[in-house]
Computed example of a mutant assay.
Amino acid sequence: MLDINESPKFVGSIIREKRKAKGWHQSDLAEFASLNRNYIGEIERGESNPSIFTLLKISKALGLNGAEELFGEFQEEMFPYIMLLDENEEVK
C-alpha cells in the first residue's frame, strides 16, 4: 500500500515519466496544461500537492484519458490520495 505521505513524490514521478516519454520539457507540459513551469517542477519533485483539477489538466495535456491512464496500474493505490485532493481543491 502506498504511504499517503509519499504520494506527492509518487505522483510527480509518474507525471515526469509520462512527460519524458513524449520527449517534452517541463515548459512544454506547462504550456499545454496552461500551468506555470515552476509549478510543474514542484509537482514532479513531490513538493506540491496538485488538485484533482490540475491532475486532469496535466492528463489532458499528455493526451491521456484522465486519472485512469495517468496512474494506470497504480490507480487503486492512488484512490485515497485523489479523494484527499478533491477535498482540498486548488487551482494554480
Rank of each mutant, 00 (worst) to 15 (best):
39 Y>E: 02
29 L>E: 02
56 L>A: 01
49 N>S: 10
3 D>V: 14
90 E>G: 02
60 K>Y: 10
22 K>H: 13
16 R>I: 06
63 G>A: 00
58 I>W: 07
91 V>N: 14
51 S>E: 09
30 A>L: 01
89 E>M: 05
86 D>G: 04
2 L>P: 13
74 F>S: 15
33 A>S: 05
37 R>M: 03
6 E>P: 07
59 S>H: 07
28 D>P: 06
65 N>K: 15
43 I>N: 11
74 F>M: 15
66 G>W: 09
74 F>V: 14
59 S>D: 07
58 I>Q: 06
79 F>K: 15
47 E>R: 10
14 I>K: 13
31 E>K: 08
40 I>K: 08
12 G>S: 05
41 G>R: 11
3 D>P: 14
48 S>R: 15
33 A>I: 01
48 S>D: 14
39 Y>N: 05
1 M>R: 11
41 G>A: 08
7 S>N: 10
71 F>M: 00
91 V>L: 14
19 R>Y: 03
72 G>H: 12
48 S>G: 06
4 I>V: 12
2 L>M: 15
29 L>G: 01
73 E>V: 08
48 S>Y: 15
27 S>Q: 08
74 F>R: 15
26 Q>W: 10
84 L>F: 13
42 E>M: 04
62 L>V: 07
68 E>T: 05
58 I>S: 02
86 D>Y: 07
76 E>Y: 11
45 R>E: 02
44 E>Q: 08
49 N>C: 08
30 A>H: 04
64 L>K: 03
17 E>C: 03
70 L>M: 08
79 F>E: 15
79 F>G: 07
12 G>K: 03
3 D>R: 15
25 H>W: 10
50 P>G: 00
36 N>A: 01
49 N>G: 03
46 G>S: 07
69 E>R: 02
8 P>F: 06
89 E>H: 02
61 A>N: 01
86 D>R: 09
37 R>K: 09
72 G>V: 06
20 K>T: 12
28 D>R: 04
4 I>Q: 13
74 F>K: 15
87 E>K: 12
44 E>T: 06
85 L>Y: 00
34 S>G: 10
60 K>C: 04
22 K>R: 05
29 L>C: 01
13 S>C: 14
